[in-house]
């Protein structure tokens, strides 16, 4: 709720210069997460760099290899409803539309979505300790109310989960994040973009201070026919996932040529395990195989006092969502379980 400078760069390079490497200079895109945190006194930017005037970041184009490049500034709604996204990456459309509300999706941008912060109660309360907010202060979620928290990849310092829906699909689709900064341009494979808390829970991702996301690349794929996004939560819409699953299948008749399964709501990043996907390769697309893959994906899962249910729930969700992927028409608005 502090005062800040407001800057309007006219080019990407000007924006990067304005940001410098000072972490308290922040890009503002849709503002839906940044202003939320600012008003809760969790973020105190010195300067806001409004990147909304940079048309270079605001388009969806085809890539040479036959994939798509999603501009970082395209809104979540414009992306989800873009004809090429609907045609080639319907899984991404479904995941985006399962997130937040229509109004927020009209504002939220693809870049901002990747960088939204956890919704952990304790992170959100500046009056209590939190290792993510205030490193070394402790994690009251571990012994507190942890119904929403992580079952996979957590550390003894932080059990927060990453709340994005869009990113669960992006993880499944092997997206690549394109960034630019004072050190030049980088492409970051999606799996390396978000990180696990370890002993540095303050860091959500591998972006360097001052780096700007310019676009997200989607490689070509064969997942436009059999895909599904399922989101389980405490009400049927406008709530964050307790568990969500993105499933994409490339089928050869009844046989799985390639499978992708990513989980949301269970870890500090979208959760994938290639062993589970490899297990499905060449197997029949039947419930028993999806159940076995689920067991592999959930290996090492650990529950806390209030979230142990996420382990069986995730397993059932993986199975159901795989079956829904075989019949994508069974998907319902709000990514609810099929009827």
């Amino acid at each position: 709720m502090n005062n800040f400078d407001y800057l309007q760069p006219q080019s990407v390079s000007e924006a990067v210069d304005q940001a410098g490497t000072n972490d308290s200079n922040r890009f503002i895109a849709g503002g839906t997460n940044l202003l939320d945190l600012w008003k809760y006194d969790l973020l105190h930017p010195a300067a806001l760099i409004d990147i909304n005037q940079l048309p270079a970041l605001n388009s969806i184009t085809e890539t040479a290899e036959g994939g798509l490049r999603l501009g970082a500034l395209c809104t979540n709604a414009a992306t989800a409803y873009h004809p090429l996204v609907e045609e080639r990456y319907p899984l991404l459309s479904k995941a985006i539309l399962a997130g937040a509300s229509a109004q927020i999706r009209n504002m939220a941008t693809n870049g901002g979505n990747l960088l939204q912060r956890t919704r952990c109660y304790y992170f959100y309360d500046p009056a209590v300790p939190c290792n993510k907010r205030n490193p070394g202060s402790g994690c009251p979620a571990i012994g507190g109310y942890n119904r929403m928290h992580a079952i996979l990849g957590a550390s003894d310092q932080c059990i927060a989960v990453f709340p994005s829906d869009m990113c669960v699909a992006l993880a499944a689709l092997n997206a690549v994040v394109l960034v630019t900064g004072q050190q030049g341009d980088r492409s970051i494979p999606f799996a390396d973009f978000h990180r696990l808390p370890g002993d540095q829970p303050a860091l959500d991702n591998t972006l360097l201070p001052g780096e700007l996301i310019t676009a997200i690349d989607l490689p070509p794929n064969r997942f436009a026919t059999n895909y599904s996004y399922l989101k389980l939560r405490d009400r049927h819409s406008y709530a964050f996932a307790l568990v969500s699953v993105a499933t994409a299948l490339d089928l050869d008749g009844d046989t799985i040529r390639e499978a992708r399964i990513a989980l949301g709501g269970v870890a500090h990043k979208p959760w994938r395990n290639e062993l589970a996907e490899q297990f499905l390769q060449g197997k029949a697309a039947i419930e028993a195989n999806f159940a076995a893959a689920a067991d592999i994906l959930l290996q090492g899962a650990q529950g806390y006092q209030h979230n142990g249910f996420k382990i069986p729930l995730a397993k059932k969700a993986i199975i159901r969502n795989s079956l829904m992927a075989l019949d994508p028409a069974s998907q319902l608005p709000g990514a609810q379980p099929s009827a």
Partner: peptide, 11 residues
């Protein structure tokens, strides 16, 4: 449709 609480007027 957007949420007016989540954007700055200067934007």
């Amino acid at each position: 449709r957007i949420l007016s609480c989540m954007t700055l007027a200067v934007m």
